[in-house]
Design a protein around this nucleic acid. Sequence first.
DNA 1: GATTAGGTTTAG
Length: 776
Amino acid sequence: MPVVFGCVGNSPMGHLDAMPSHVLLEGMGPDAQVPAHLTRIPISLIKTSTDCTNKTVKGIVVHKGPLVQSADFILKSVIQEADSPPNPSSQNSSINVVLFGALAKDFSQAVNQGDVVVASGFTVSKSPTVHKDKLHPCNLLLSGDNACVYVSRQQPPPDPTSLPAIKRSTTLSTEASRGNKAPKYTYIPLGDLKSGCVVNVYGVVIFFKQPFKSRGTDYCSSLKITDQSNQKISCTIFCEKLEDHPKIFQIGDIVRMHRVKTQLFNNSVMLVNTFGFSVIAFDGAVGADLKPRTSSRSFHLDNEDLRTVEELRAWAASQALLPPVPTIPLSDVQPKAYFDLTCQLLAKAPIDSTCTLLRVWDGTRCPWTLLKVIVEPNVTEGPLSFSKEKENLIANILIYDNHVEFARQLKPGDFLRIYNLRAIPGSSKVPGLTRSQTLELDHLAFHLHGGTAYGRGIRVLPENSPDVQQLKRVLDAFTEVDELNDSELLEVWCTPPESLDGETGQPGTGMKPNTLQLLDRQEVPDDELVAGVFSEASRDSGACIPPPWALSGDVDVPRESPGSPKRSLCIHLSSQLMSEGKSKELIFLMGSTLEETCRLAASYRNIVPVRSSGGHLALLNLSAPFLFRGRKRFYGCKRCSKAEVREPCAEGVEVIDEKTIAEALGVQLLQFVLLMKLELQDASDTLEAFLWRDAELFFSLSAEDLATSQEAQNHIKQTMESLCPPGGHTGERPWLNVCLTAYRAENDEGQNQTCYQICHTTISKPSCTQSDPEPA
DNA sequence: GATTAGGTTTAG
């Protein structure tokens, strides 16, 4: 059944549904269709200088490459001189033929290996693969309107099993078809994939399995990827060498794959690697390093690629495709949970043929009692024991079945990510234990079960990966501390300044806020307490003689609501201020409630609440503010003040401030101070540190504003929530780079102890996860 | 030279 292709031009990508243009004719060979004005030339005589106008070649298809869907369709084929016995002395009777556009697509559909074709309208170029494939030094390019291929089958019907067995002379690279320059790749959106093509794609990884040994000869990787088209495409990669597999570390990573073939499985298009397959992977986080993960030395990456990666990153972020926490630290592990762990291998030991012990740490301490496994010392690789402190951080992980072989290749010191690890509470039998070896009850055991479900597996992370860099900082910090013995450590931390002045800050690194609590000693009293003081003061409403400098009168309190009863209160004013026309600058208010005082504060700049005491005017108990100004309240020290109602000296004073009033009243003015205690945690331990002297610097606001401004309070709240998310895991808390001051201070029991304060440190943004220490 | 797997939890 001969087949004739019509002359077809290049079809722009996307016109994949264009009707094939071949015409079926029966009972004739391809030659019957070739127009008479064309003359055939032998393949072996083709040179780049050959004038191909009105020339044809005829050959048997000895290789048909895959249809590559690129900017255009491309298909590469090899034909061998037909109808004449191939000259064994000549290697030039087989030639590469490269077809473009719809012609390539039609050729892919209608031509099989073994068919005889006649081609016309071709051009000749140098074959870039001549040294590799030892074929004809030229190749034939078939594109554009003049290109035409006439086809016939040698043995109809086209039953693949009955086709002449023609050995492929060599393997071919599709890259070869584009000349010597770095090929320009086109990437097909995942939503546009059609089955039966070889394509290049980009995608965001939404599921992955680390390479695992297949039942065949290769390792198999399983991926599911997606892109802006929202199509979710499964990919299966078979490669004999592990290094040829995609290097996926976590969900959200981005892969670029070259030469994967599309095929239908379960009514969905899926991807499988095909000849010439290559893959590179990128971190999927916006702003992360754009260094591709690959073992290939000759990958091509241009600005367009980087732009594609950035676009996918931004899109993935908008879709929340990246997990908020890539892995769970040991400190946050929950019993019964499956989790991924990023850790360092310290030691390992085989337990039996189906189980290997990995001793790992990540610098955090698991709050649960961990499984202890005792193994024969002579089978352990790595140190047999560690310092007590370090031992407390080490998790024993039992690796089972198929993962044992992989674990065998691990070396102590390796940085690992273990996927789908399971934390099992209680006791379980550990194979290989002798009678003398005990297993603790009520522990948490970590198992990497057999199988690859849910991506279960192990990966060695490269030392330069950001997650490893972060882990190393934590581990190094611990090791540094661990190597000092306790007394040395104490000496380092206990070189305190005599006082807070002249202290030297010690930059601390890697401290993590753990828990936060406000010190409740000397707290600013709440309204309930203050209202109680007012209430008590108004009960002492005996007769009182105002001081001679005062003018007394009544003031109507603004009503709470139109219907509420009218109330007037006794006030005393400074006659001097009155004479200067500043009667509203300061009033001494008697018998008011806290609430009424606040209402009057809208009309009078300064209000000093007073009471009657022994026939004289007196200030209220200094638990309450001695002065109200707008929303601000000023407090006096109960111990240091010698309070008495006196006329402020306001002569020549433009504005009466709290200092003038406090001075006149003998009140030792108190300052608002923000005092917090933070529990910081790093790999080595936790540490309580005060935020006090530089608390305002830390939060970039004044404590006084904090007492009155809702905005300032919100700012603090947001900042604290970003440092210590409510209900969040430790892993979600940011790392802080803080400067600490160590000093000696007496505690409540009169004992000298070392205290720590955060100093010279500013949180740069409320939502920011890092703080920037300012130069001391 | 084709085949391998085709996500979805061990059962210690």
